[in-house]
Computed example of a mutant assay.
Amino acid sequence: MAERLRLGVNIDHVATVRNARGGAAPDPVRAAQLAVAAGADGITAHLREDRRHIRDADMERLARELTRPLNFEMGATEEMIALAERLKPHAACLVPEKREERTTEGGLDVVGQRDQLVPKIARLKAAGCRVSLFIEPDEAPIAMAAELGAPVVELHTGSWCEALTHGETDAAEAQFARLARGAAHAAALGLEVHAGHGLDFDSARRLAGVPEFVEFNIGHFLIGEAIFTGLDAAIGRMRAAMDEGRGL
């Protein structure tokens, strides 16, 4: 029987709404707790250099209060590595980060940044964090992730989801095939394979049919859907879509 996919819920954009008014509501930690109650297997939060959504105090509370694994998304900077060493989240996912981008635009350049990443990954592992690398679903970065000793890769699904959004059928099929090949290659190298960026009910359902994937991390879509249906209903529907795609 196929294994059930894990669902990680990213609560960044609850903080985006909070910060738009500069107050305390809505509280992203409360959203994380509600997500767990609704069936999330873990919580993801990205503390950006410019603190545009999640703030240091949010990370402190998440690390202290969560009853499910915390996945700390972070740029590979000294500031973030030191914070992860102190907070000791379950997982640390290294992502590329540019101040001017609206959201993470692609995978981390693990090939070009190999020498800088080696000591940072070692420090995170020494702190007890399960290191994940957010990368493109291509052979070179996947092979480098394995060489670097990261146990997990999260494959960037943004190019596929963008093609789907714009109705670019041929491009979408090519990107889906790229993801499936990447997942198979990563799993063959002994890596645990996650996916994320831009997934919605339909795309998560289809991607769940690729057996090498173990976990999806989904945020913006679920928080947006929660405006209309509530967070528990949105997570429940996503969980059902993933289970259907996996054949459960």
Rank of each mutant, 00 (worst) to 15 (best):
D170S: 12
R99I: 08
K125R: 15
G149F: 02
A195H: 07
A91W: 02
I142R: 07
A140Q: 12
I142F: 07
S159F: 08
K120R: 15
A122T: 07
G75K: 01
P151I: 08
C129H: 07
P89A: 04
C93P: 01
M80S: 10
E101C: 01
R99E: 10
S132K: 00
A150E: 06
I81E: 06
K125G: 07
M74Y: 04
R181Q: 14
R86T: 11
E173L: 13
A126M: 03
C161D: 13
A180T: 10
A143E: 15
E97V: 01
L117D: 05
L124G: 12
H156Y: 15
M144S: 03
H197Q: 14
L189K: 12
Q175S: 10
G106E: 04
Q175K: 14
P89Y: 08
G198Y: 13
W160V: 07
L133N: 06
L83A: 08
T165R: 14
A82T: 12
L117W: 02
E97M: 01
A91N: 11
G198H: 11
G106A: 10
A140F: 01
L191G: 14
G167R: 05
K98R: 15
S132V: 02
A184R: 15
T157L: 06
R178V: 08
G75N: 05
A195Q: 08
K120M: 15
A171S: 13
L179S: 12
R130M: 10
G107W: 03
A126I: 04
L133E: 09
G112T: 06
I142M: 09
A127M: 13
V153A: 10
C129N: 13
E101T: 02
H90I: 00
S203Y: 07
R99Y: 04
G198I: 07
I135G: 10
A183N: 09
R86Q: 12
A188R: 13
H156V: 06
L124I: 02
L87G: 02
A171V: 15
T103F: 06
G182M: 10
G75E: 11
R130H: 12
G107K: 05
A122S: 11
Q113L: 15
I121C: 04
H185D: 11
E147H: 06
D170L: 13
P141H: 09
E105T: 00
R102M: 03
E147K: 13
I135H: 10
A195F: 08
